[in-house]
Design a binder for these strands. Structure first.
Length: 467
RNA sequence: GCCUCUUUAGCUCAGUUGGUUAGAGCACAUGACUGUUAAUCAUGGGGUCCUAGGUUCAAGUCCUAGAAGGGGCGCCA
C-alpha cells in the first residue's frame, strides 16, 4: 500500500491525530538505533523539526542486512502504521512495515556520533554539522529571523532595496576591502607610471566587494521613502574574534524624514519584534539551545522584551564610567572610543539592559553623521547588547550639503568618488536616518551561541574558506 | 595584527619528579537481553603522543622553531 510521505514536524502537530492507525511514510536520517534481539528502535530526523520520530521495527520482519545498514547517519525511508506510543518519551511512533535504505553511513568513518561533539570539532566538518541537533536548531532559527525581517519591514511599508555587491567606492572608509578583478594577477597590464592599468579591468576601473550598502541605501530613502537592504557584506579585516566574519549579512534600513529619535524607536521596536518572533515561532529549537548551551537564554530573551532600552548621550556614559570606581584596563576620558570593557560595564553591570549611546564625538564617527549644534558631537547611535556588544550602528545623516562637504574635505576624502552621493544633498536634500544590524550578531543573541562562526552555515574568516 | 592557552585512540580527556608494554569514558565490532529513550551489561580491536630539530643513558613529559585550534584585545556589524 502506498503511503503519502509526511514531514516529521507534521506528526507532532495537533492534527496528526488524523493519521493514527493509518500507514504513513517518513524519510530522513538516522540519529540512533537501539533495542534488543526482537525489536529495534530508530530515532529518525528529517530536519523539519528538532524532534525525532521513533520507528519501531520488529526484528523478525526485517532482514539482518537491512537492519545492519541502519546506523547513525544513514538515510532511510520508512513506511508503517502511526500508533500511540507504548513507551515513554514520545506521544506517537511508527510501527514499521517496510524500510528502504537510501544511503548508508559507515559507522567507522562517519564523523558524527550519537554522543555530543564540541563546537570546535564541528567547525572542522562544517559540511556535515547541519545534521546535528544544534546546527539544525540554529539554522532553522536563522531562516525564521530572515523571514521575520522581511515581514517586519514589508508590514511597515518599507521597500526591499538591492544595493550592489560590487562597488567602485570605498563606501565609508570602513577598512580593508576585497578587490574584484578579472586581470591576470601574475601579469597585469601596466600604465605609464608602471602601475596596474585598471582601465583594462572588467569594469574599466578598480572594483571591490561592498563593506556597506548604506550610501546606495540613502539614494533609496531619498526617492521611495523607506527602504531596507538585507544582503551579504564583506570586510577584509584580519579580525580573529568570536564576533567577526569576513563575509556576513547585514540589514540596513534607511528612512526619509526620520530623525535620530525616530531612528532609535525603529531600532528598538525592530529588535523586540524579532526576539518576540523567535520566541513565538522557534519554541522547540530555542528550548533545546536553552537546555544544552545556555540555561539563561529564554530568560534573557524575555527580559529584553519587557524593558525599555536606555538612551544615553556619550558624555553621560563617560561620566558614569569615570565615577564608577571600576578599574578599567584602558582609563576613560572624553573623546575616546569606548572599549569592549566599557560597553560591557554599562550594559551588564550598570544598567543591566540594552543601551543606546548617542551624541558621539565627531572625530571617532563617520563623515556622514549629522552634526549637532555644539560643533563637537554627531547624531550617531550604537545599540549595545549584553554579551555581544555592538549589535547596531546608525545615525541621523547630515543633510546639509555644505556641512557634509566641509567634513569630507577635513578627512581628505576623494570628492570625485562621491559626486553621485552628494547629489542626494544637492537636489531636494531630505532629513533622513538609518542603521545597520549585523544579522549574525542578532543570531548570537537569539540562539545564545558564543561564536559567530556557529550561526552561519559556511563561515568565512582569515585563513579559512573551505566548504 | 598583538597577548595567552591548548594539541595524547573516531570523540572528550587523564597521564605524578623525565624511567618497563601510554590509560579512562563514550564511539565502533561481537555477544546477552521481548519496549528502548544519548538503552544497559560482558568481551574485543583501535595510538606517527601535531610537525621538525635539540638536551639526556632515557622524552608524551624539558628546550627551540613552526603549524592548527580556543580565549582575550584591536578593527567593527
Amino acid at each position: 500500500m502506498e503511503a503519502r510521505r509526511i514531514e516529521i514536524k507534521e506528526l507532532f502537530c495537533e492534527n496528526a491525530k488524523q493519521w493514527i492507525s493509518q500507514d504513513v511514510c517518513v524519510k530522513g536520517w538516522v540519529r540512533t538505533k537501539r533495542g534488543n534481539k526482537s525489536v529495534a528502535f530508530i530515532a529518525l530526523n528529517d530536519g523539519s523539526t528538532i524532534k525525532n520520530i521513533q520507528i519501531v521495527a520488529d526484528v523478525a520482519n526485517f532482514s539482518e542486512d537491512i537492519l545492519n545498514q541502519i546506523t547513525t547517519g544513514a538515510c532511510i525511508c520508512a513506511v508503517g502504521k502511526l500508533v500511540e506510543s507504548m513507551g515513554k518519551g514520545q506521544s506517537v511512533e511508527i510501527q514499521a512495515n517496510s524500510i528502504e535504505i537510501y544511503g548508508t553511513a559507515d559507522p567507522q568513518t562517519y564523523p558524527l556520533q550519537k554522543k555530543g561533539h564540541s563546537l570546535e570539532f564541528l567547525r572542522g566538518i562544517a559540511h556535515l554539522r547541519p545534521r546535528t541537533n544544534t546546527f539544525g536548531a540554529v539554522l532553522r532559527i536563522r531562516h525564521n529571523m530572515a523571514f521575520a525581517i522581511h515581514k517586519y519591514f514589508n508590514d511597515k511599508g518599507f521597500f526591499y532595496w538591492h544595493s550592489p555587491l560590487i562597488t567602485a567606492s570605498d563606501c565609508e572608509g570602513a577598512g580593508e576591502m576585497f578587490q574584484v578583478t578579472t586581470l591576470d594577477l601574475d601579469n597585469t597590464p601596466k600604465n605609464e607610471q608602471g602601475k596596474t592599468d585598471y582601465t583594462q579591468d572588467f569594469f574599466g576601473q578598480s572594483t571591490f566587494l561592498t563593506v556597506s550598502g548604506q550610501l546606495e541605501g540613502e539614494l533609496g530613502a531619498t526617492s521611495i521613502g523607506k527602504i531596507y537592504t538585507f544582503g551579504p557584506t564583506f570586510r577584509a579585516e584580519n579580525s580573529n574574534t568570536p564576533r567577526h566574519l569576513a563575509e556576513f549579512w547585514m540589514i540596513e534600513p534607511e528612512m526619509a524624514f526620520y530623525d535620530i529619535n525616530d531612528n532609535m524607536d525603529l531600532a528598538e521596536d525592530f529588535i523586540k519584534y524579532l526576539v518576540r518572533y523567535a520566541l513565538d515561532n522557534c519554541k522547540d529549537d530555542i528550548a533545546f539551545l536553552n537546555d544544552m548551551y545556555d540555561k539563561d537564554l529564554i530568560n534573557r530573551l524575555e527580559s529584553v522584551l519587557k524593558e525599555d532600552f536606555v538612551r544615553l548621550p556619550y558624555k553621560e556614559a563617560i561620566d558614569i564610567l569615570e565615577k564608577s570606581g571600576h578599574k578599567f584596563e584602558v582609563s576613560v576620558s572624553w573623546g575616546m572610543d569606548l572599549q569592549s570593557e566599557h560597553e560591557r560595564y554599562l550594559v551588564e553591570q550598570h544598567f543591566k539592559r540594552p543601551v543606546i549611546l548617542i551624541d558621539w564625538p565627531k572625530e571617532i564617527k563617520s563623515f556622514y553623521m549629522k552634526q549637532n549644534d555644539d560643533g563637537k558631537t554627531v547624531r550617531g547611535m550604537d545599540v549595545l547588547f549584553p554579551q555581544i556588544g555592538e549589535i547596531i550602528g546608525g545615525s541621523e545623516r547630515e543633510a546639509d550639503y555644505n556641512k557634509l562637504v566641509t567634513r569630507m574635505k577635513e578627512l581628505n576624502m576623494n570628492m570625485e568618488h562621491y559626486q553621485w552621493y552628494l547629489d542626494t544633498r544637492r537636489f531636494g536634500s531630505a532629513p533622513h536616518s538609518g542603521f545597520g544590524l549585523g544579522f549574525e550578531r542578532l543570531l548570537l543573541f537569539v540562539t545564545g551561541m558564543a561564536n559567530i562562526r556557529d550561526v552561519i552555515p559556511f563561515a568565512r574568516f582569515p585563513k579559512n574558506a573551505m566548504f
